[in-house]
Computed example of a mutant assay.
Amino acid sequence: MTTRKTTDFGFTQVPIEEKAKRVADVFTSVATRYDVMNDLMSLGIHRLWKRYAIELSAVKRGQKVLDLAGGTGDLAKQFAAITGGIGNVVLADINADMLRVGRERLLDEGIVVDCAQVNAECLPFADNTFDIITIAFGLRNVTDKAAALRSMLRVLKPSGRVLILEFSELQLKPLKPFYDLYSFKILPLMGKLVANDAESYRYLAESIRMHPNQETLLNMMQTAGFERCRYHNLSGGIVAIHCGYKF
């Protein structure tokens, strides 16, 4: 008898082919309240995390940037301002609703970027296309993370870099009970009150715990073929930025 392959969806095991749809349902549900919830959940600190990621990218005028899982366009907006009219920024997301919200938000601010609905595991771009690839708070939702890393490496130019901004493993152990209380009790309650969706934010907390920790993700990047890989812990390891290069 053939055993059906499963993967994690938060703390639940689901058939591999079902995860993408379940994740899509989560983000379709929260798309219109996504930015408000991000500010509330992090007390606005997510903006500082993203600003640091942009600084680490060392993006320059005229470069080509792919912002994967770009959602509502926070990073794409900043990249567009830096790369200028001679550069190119692609705002990409697997979820059409998130992409629509991001595109409309940027257009409202007079910012035009290319938009693409893509699966990070099989990016539809030519080899050696982008100078910089970022993925912020999106890798943990990808079913096959190793495939996504290989796909990113393929479309990255030689000497290009990838930056992965993602929740990671808290390094300040005395704070763990408080962090767990916030994650599993307060966060779903906020989701219910603000976005009318407690379950999506319960999934968020669970998906963070199931995501590879700092060293594991570093090893995955090296296995995929990235070089000079390193990471920076932010906010005590609640978030980490992983960097890697293609040579």
Rank of each mutant, 00 (worst) to 15 (best):
T28H: 15
V118A: 05
G62Y: 11
V118T: 06
G191K: 04
L139S: 01
M37T: 08
K21H: 14
A240N: 12
D197W: 05
A31R: 03
H46P: 00
L181A: 14
D197I: 05
K157C: 01
I132Q: 07
K173S: 08
T7P: 06
L204N: 01
P174S: 02
V30C: 08
I238G: 04
I16W: 01
T7W: 00
I238K: 10
E199Q: 14
K145C: 06
T28N: 15
E206P: 06
M41E: 02
M37W: 08
D108A: 13
I82S: 00
L187K: 05
Y201T: 00
R51F: 14
S151L: 05
L175R: 07
P212R: 03
L75V: 11
V26W: 04
S57K: 08
L43A: 10
T223W: 10
Y231P: 04
V89G: 10
D97P: 02
M41P: 04
V142T: 09
F27I: 00
A126P: 07
H211E: 07
W49R: 01
S159E: 15
T223M: 13
M98L: 08
E199D: 13
Y245L: 12
D144A: 14
G244Q: 02
D131W: 02
N119V: 03
R103M: 09
N95G: 02
N141Q: 10
V112T: 12
G73V: 01
L189I: 12
Y34F: 11
T223Q: 14
G160H: 05
P174G: 01
K64E: 12
Y203R: 01
A195R: 03
I54C: 09
I238P: 06
S168R: 11
P158C: 12
E104G: 12
C229L: 08
R161W: 09
Q63S: 00
G237Y: 06
R103Y: 07
A31H: 04
T3P: 06
Y201N: 01
R154K: 11
A198M: 07
A53N: 09
G138W: 01
N95P: 00
D74T: 10
L165D: 11
A195I: 00
R161D: 00
L107A: 14
I133S: 09
G70Q: 02
E166G: 06
M1P: 06
